[in-house]
Design a protein around this nucleic acid. Structure first.
Lengths: 153, 153
DNA sequence: TGAACTGCGACAAAAATAGTCCTATACTGG
DNA sequence: CCAGTATAGGACTATTTTTGTCGCAGTTCA
């Protein structure tokens, strides 16, 4: 429940990989798929999408592949997830279009929309750089400290 | 993406409804289903589950139905969602059991686990009471203020 | 030219969700 | 104590979403 799709996972993994290998000029989808044991063609599609959205730059032909189009610090998890899985809506019925087809229906999404925004905020505050090795190597006592603090308004 | 299941939606709607009708001793699944245009049998199952978990008290027979087993302020959205959709995991591969089957695999869930915790925190901070009419009738300038404030650690 | 890539569209397979059906059991009111 | 209205819950089907595959076209490079 409330799960990221595997595609989004793959996308995040791939970007993280790219962030950790800035030396390599460009890395092929196959390279990444192999290192993680992911279906290559599926990852390829994910990367193609990320390219289309502008998060990656691609290079066809031999020794081709992908590279980050921006610094890892400037790419948020939100952008990646949004690009792959589409708009982030916690409620089935999006408030924008048509709302809930039926009747007075979900009076529930008004309040949940704010939860949604909060989640989006969390995701936006985390960059690919944050997810890369650094946190593993650096912080250790960090485990007890949440990445974000939640305080009631 | 990152969507609640309809069952969870239904559950939240039903609890909200119950919170808004404290007068009624007990409300039947059908009553709620009718007012929202939800499949009655499906809602019934959801309510049965919520009863099993202890969030509701049920009463069979004529004029039977359900009622909140506790105050609406003390029931969080998280509890409801957890009861219906099961444990909240943003990553496909839960870190607990077996992790990602393959290789070095998702080095990604470590960082995402913290996002997960943050989201759970948001959900836990919102009660059924918070979701009920009150926010609609009461606050108006509230729209611009997020329900929770996010601050980086 | 041919091998190693990306870029797509169309499928096919699998899994999760949503919803239905049917039967049993419990309580209420007359 | 009987009929009607509810909950309880198992089994099953339908639908939708997600996941993964295939095939082919365009690119680049040696």
């Amino acid at each position: 429940m409330l799960r990221l799709t595997k595609k989004a996972d793959y996308g995040l993994m791939a970007l993280k990989y790219l962030a950790e290998h800035p030396d390599s000029v460009s890395v092929s989808a196959k390279d990444i798929a192999d290192t993680y044991g992911i279906p290559p063609q599926l990852l390829a599609k994910v990367l193609q999408r990320l390219t289309k959205v502008g998060l990656l730059r691609s290079h066809a032909g031999m020794n081709g592949g992908y590279e980050l189009s921006r610094g890892a610090q400037t790419i948020s998890a939100f952008e990646v997830i949004h690009a792959i899985d589409g708009p982030l809506f916690i409620t089935s019925c999006t408030k924008g279009s048509k709302s809930c087809d039926l009747e007075p229906s979900c009076t529930i999404k008004e309040p949940l929309a704010r939860v949604n925004d909060s989640i989006a905020g969390v995701l936006k505050s985390i960059s690919i750089h944050d997810m890369a090795d650094f946190d593993v190597s650096a912080g250790h006592g960090m485990e007890s400290q949440p990445l974000v603090m939640l305080t009631r308004a």
